[in-house]
Design a protein around this nucleic acid. Sequence first.
DNA 1: ACAATAGGGGAGTAATTTATCCCTATATGA
DNA 2: TCATATAGGGATAAATTACTCCCCTATTGT
Lengths: 123, 123
Amino acid sequence: MYERKMIPNLTCGLDLIGEVLYGKWKIRLLWFINEGYKRPSELQRKIPDASGRVLNMQLKELEDHELIMKKIYPVVPPKVEYSLTGLGKTLIPVISVLGEWGDNNEEKLRSVILSRFNDLSGH
Amino acid sequence: MYERKMIPNLTCGLDLIGEVLYGKWKIRLLWFINEGYKRPSELQRKIPDASGRVLNMQLKELEDHELIMKKIYPVVPPKVEYSLTGLGKTLIPVISVLGEWGDNNEEKLRSVILSRFNDLSGH
DNA sequence: ACAATAGGGGAGTAATTTATCCCTATATGA
DNA sequence: TCATATAGGGATAAATTACTCCCCTATTGT
């Protein structure tokens, strides 16, 4: 397991939210859990670009940060369900704001993001 | 210069905003530019934990993504001023929402973030 | 006997991001 | 003559994140 070597700055609110949301799939995981996709296999099907291994690691971090809860049913084959904690639920409107800004500026953003790639392949 | 090998997914608004805000110092740079700290040396003084080199690279990406504008004065010693574009300005309320969530949950967040570090050093 | 299902984990590696070190240039002031 | 301020960049190292491969558990169904 990887062990961090640098201790993060936690001087302001932006540092704090950054620390818990930074992670390629975390926002999406929170979103889908909020929409009712609770089981790891369901989340995996919603996010096929990520491996199960990686989703699992990010879910673990979300759990450690107390944004989600994990319920393990003692059955075979195993059954697990995630749900948002109180803290996690308060993050949903924040994620909405992010998504809305992206949606509102979709064309412009897609254009500027992709133009950097075109410039690179040009030489 | 590093050249990306994987093309990002840009399927929804969350992908798009993630692409332009992902970067350790970017949100802070936007925030301080909005507060009126326009020159590279001023920004460097506001963010002493980052090297000038790194800030410069992130400023360049913000500029490529058309969130900020760069004005170069042809004087010696050189003078440069950054300012938010129209698109960049619309991001300020979004960043506010992020910061407020962090501020509102400051104690809780600090606690869960740091407890992971304590657990690690425990063995 | 064997595959399928559901969740998980170790080891190793690839991709990416961030940091460090050391240069460039020019004018001003001591 | 030498340090300072100002903005920047190349090369490389370090840190971090994400991925791939292969393994384990136990039960149900074929």
